Simulated assay, not measured.
Amino acid sequence: MKYRVRHITEYLYNAPVTLCYNMAHLLPRDTLNQRCLSRRIKVTPTPVYQTNGEDYFGNPTFYFSVQEPHKKLAIDVECYFEIEQNDVSGQLSLHGLTCKELRQQLTEASTPQLRMVKEYTLDSLHIRRSKALADYARDCFLDNTPVLQASMDFTHKIFEEFTFDPAATSVSTPAEQVLKEKRGVCQDFAHLAIACIRSIGLPARYMSGYLETLPPPGQEKLVGADASHAWFAIFIPDLGWVEFDPTNDLMPNEQHIVTAWGRDYADVTPLQGVIFDGGDSQSLNVSVDVQRV
């Protein structure tokens, strides 16, 4: 399946910004089943310096600097790419590694891959492990339960018990607060799942990208359509990172478009940087269009 994604980000300031330096995570990355065919990024005003790069996690990055006064900054990204369908549902019945066995493999860490994966069992900027989070996940991740089945059960648990509410949280809302209030958005549900999984000693990472939906006649559209989206992945030896979407209660397939991954949202913020001046307030407008081509 081939897709076109256009993502427009606009910042409006109440006073001129005299200088800005930025790094963007806006370009979809190549994965085992996703291949970028072409990509274009345009910044207005025109930067005096811009370059492509790659971060610690292998995500494509775009650095730029604007050194002329401006009250509006616009970043217009257009990408074409191809996604191959995977039989993700078949993995549940074919892989029987239990939670206890995975914990034991992580303790021994007998391969370089397992030693690197242990980074995703630790705390990060937006995720802190706790007993309360471990207790919430423990009934799904019992010692003798296969990890994949436990992850799917936990994904369903979050989907059933939490309410999608864009007004309930902010980017920095702690996972324990989300757990208490049972409300949030896709980013919150991804952070919550990761925090719970790490709290029971298993590796989980944050996935950022887009969600394309074409619902069958008579069915409702998936939450998060035509917007940035977030979900999580858990590491399984022999399979690698297997993805789950608690916002929509499914295992991502060809409709999930990966932009970047990391320990949490802070590692893959769409745009981050430094501005000089710009007044005491700013507004942000984001437009995302995902189309099959």
Rank of each mutant, 00 (worst) to 15 (best):
C20A: 10
L94F: 06
P47N: 06
P60L: 06
P45L: 04
V88R: 07
A15G: 09
E101T: 11
L106T: 10
T18D: 13
D55W: 05
Y21K: 15
T98F: 03
V43D: 00
F64Y: 15
E82K: 13
L27Q: 09
R103N: 10
C79G: 03
E84H: 08
L32Q: 12
P16M: 03
P47I: 02
S38K: 14
L32E: 14
I83D: 01
H95M: 02
T51L: 11
R40A: 07
V66C: 11
H25G: 11
F62N: 00
D76Y: 00
Y49L: 11
S38Q: 12
A74V: 15
E68R: 05
T18Q: 15
T61Y: 00
T18H: 13
P60D: 06
F57E: 04
T107P: 02
L19G: 00
L92C: 01
S65V: 15
K71D: 13
P47C: 01
G96L: 09
V77E: 02
D76F: 04
P69A: 06
V48P: 00
T31D: 01
L97Y: 04
K42P: 04
A24S: 11
E108T: 14
N14H: 12
V77C: 04
P69H: 00
A15P: 04
N22G: 13
D76W: 00
N86A: 09
L27C: 13
I41W: 00
N86S: 13
S65G: 10
S89W: 10
A74I: 15
L102W: 07
D87A: 08
Q91H: 09
A15W: 05
T51A: 14
R39F: 14
I75W: 04
T44S: 12
T51M: 11
L97G: 02
T44E: 08
N22S: 14
L106F: 09
Y49V: 02
R103G: 08
H95V: 08
E78W: 01
R40L: 05
Q34T: 05
L27V: 13
K71I: 13
I75K: 03
T46L: 08
T18N: 12
Q105K: 15
S93V: 12
L94M: 10
L19W: 14
K71C: 14
F57N: 08
V43M: 01
P16A: 10
V77I: 08
L106H: 09
L19N: 12
S89K: 10
C36V: 13
Q104N: 12
V88Y: 09
L26Q: 10
C20S: 15
N14F: 05
F81W: 01
N59L: 06
C36W: 03
Y63C: 04
V17Q: 09
E78N: 08
I41K: 01
P112H: 03
A24E: 02
Q104F: 11
T107Y: 09
L19H: 14
G53K: 04
L92A: 02
G58M: 07
Q67W: 05
Y21D: 12
E54P: 00
N59A: 05
P60A: 05
Y21N: 14
C99E: 03
F64C: 01
F62V: 04
L27E: 11
T107V: 13
T44N: 01
